[in-house]
Amino acid sequence: MQNTRDAASPAIELTRVSRRFVSPEGKAIMALRDFNMTVKRGEFCAVVGPTGCGKSTTLSLITGLAKPSDGEVRIWGEPVTDIDPRIGFVFQSDAVFPWKSVLENVAAGPLFRGTARPDALAKARDWVRRVGLAGFEHHYPHQLSGGMRKRVALAQTFINEPEILLMDEPFSALDVQTRTLMQDELLSLWRDNGASVVFVTHDLEEAIALADRVFVLTKGPATVKRVVEIDLPRPRVTSEIRYSPRFLELSRQIWEDLKDEVHI
């Protein structure tokens, strides 16, 4: 009985979630208000919204690093209690370990989870190759470019074979050309992995190019303003798809929603 319910339930479900917290200065802040979101299994969802509206908070709630003040967060039908091992997370900042080489960084996940060192390193070597960093196994992060460090971060996450992949503006620090290449890299890794993805970004075009559905949020405290289905065909090449008429149409449509929320 438990199993059938489990199999039918969506990968991620946020129901009427609010999140309030108190800043270190003692000020109460409301980041999310009455927030609803459902991500189907194997679906790629993007979350766009104005800066500082609480986009990243949704990800913290799904990982269990933060608890909701009201409402419920479920993954595969189960309430989130702790960090689930099936979750992978790619951070905005450089979160690779600067004192570990590329190979050791990628092997970190399996090693933390108790895989024997030779097996973990062999698996890591394979992933380093898959993200195109063969030959850089023994470099330290400071010797790599920003794009290469992001590849390390992707390999580090994908090696754990996550079934839910959370990404918090992962490419926002990269230049435009590198970002486009990394988006294609991500799509090809995701195609093999098939995880359910929540991709937070402030870049509208990035959201459309990558996702199946785009959640547009209001300014903080954030709530879902609109959900847009992206019916662009897959597999996509992000550098080309942005010139298709349908892309421009979607882009204009979402911008109409978003611009009311953005104030300079």
Binding site: F97, G109, F112, Q156
Partner: peptide
Amino acid sequence: DRYLIANAQILGASRRQVTTAVVIPS
């Protein structure tokens, strides 16, 4: 760095592993 600590936790590090693999090196 709290992002490094969060990253290690999500990658599967226990509290002790966070200390030895992240906190002490940094």
